[in-house]
Amino acid sequence: MNMFMAINDAMRTALKSDDSAVLFGEDVAFGGVFRCSMGLRDEFGKNRVFNTPLCEQGIAGFGIGYASTGRTAIAEVQFADYIFPAFDQLVNEAAKMRYRSGNQFNCGGLTVRAPYGAIGHGGHYHSQSPEAYFTHTPGLKVVIPRDPIQAKGLLLSCIRDPNPCIFFEPKALYRGSVGDVPVGDYTIPLGKAEIVQPGTDVTVVGWGAQMHVLAKACDMAQSEMGISCELIDLRTIVPWDIATIVDSVKKTGRLVVSHEAPKTSGFAAEIAATISDKCFLYLEAPIQRVCGYDTPFPLVFEKCYVPDHLKNFEAIKHTVDF
């Protein structure tokens, strides 16, 4: 099963197990541009799986309203780049409803799904990684899976989590990432990172599609330099699993964090700041951030822009050589 099928399976499971769950977004009734909702309208009816007009702010507000009646809303934003019209609704309404109502109302049943990230030719507005913007908002959870097995378990967790969640799907992996996805109903806990590959010399942290780039960089470090990397998938960007990263860095003394989003104020900065605070005396080298450049996501320069395995390999090497 590849990733779009796993996501489809997660939503089918959610719709089946919860009568109040509805799925909506631009073109989702026809399967959505990435086919994630294929067949769901036929299976669950047009009252539960439906197309919306192209109005992200309205879609988000609509979902918040529905979810605030204690029901489950799964909203799709067609590309993460289009989530910005909905930014106000998510940041000011969804995230703060519980707090400002003194816990009387909440929209915990809301999950917003959006495909993010580079795809080779997406250009400025079909390639961005906006996760960091939302991590600046207490009240939201931000989750990004790296493969189909993770995608199904984490998406089901998001849908069932009693807090509003934003689920960014690595669009580059929809078809390319294949795995033996369990057919049944399962969830993967939010807020827990996963050590994908244990190691002793350098801690390497990433999420989503970047995990595949990092795995390649770690292999390269092992085969060319004999460096043993501990590769960690953060999975939930907020609230993030500080303890797992801290434990790892205490062991390795070195940290490389990588994401596609621009470096300045990217989430790697938050991780670096926290780790330098908590592990200062354990660090053998400055923490390295390997990120996109501080430019708009480029069309023709994408290959140059993305933090590929070579840039990450360089950073790993640098921490060891320091």
């Binding site: 507000g61 609509f62 309203g65 029901r71 609704q89």
Partner: peptide, 20 residues
Amino acid sequence: YGGAAIVGAQVPIGAGLGFS
């Protein structure tokens, strides 16, 4: 469902309530 501080933000939420 309360008062909303962001001018107009309560309106699409109201649409979601109606859908419910």
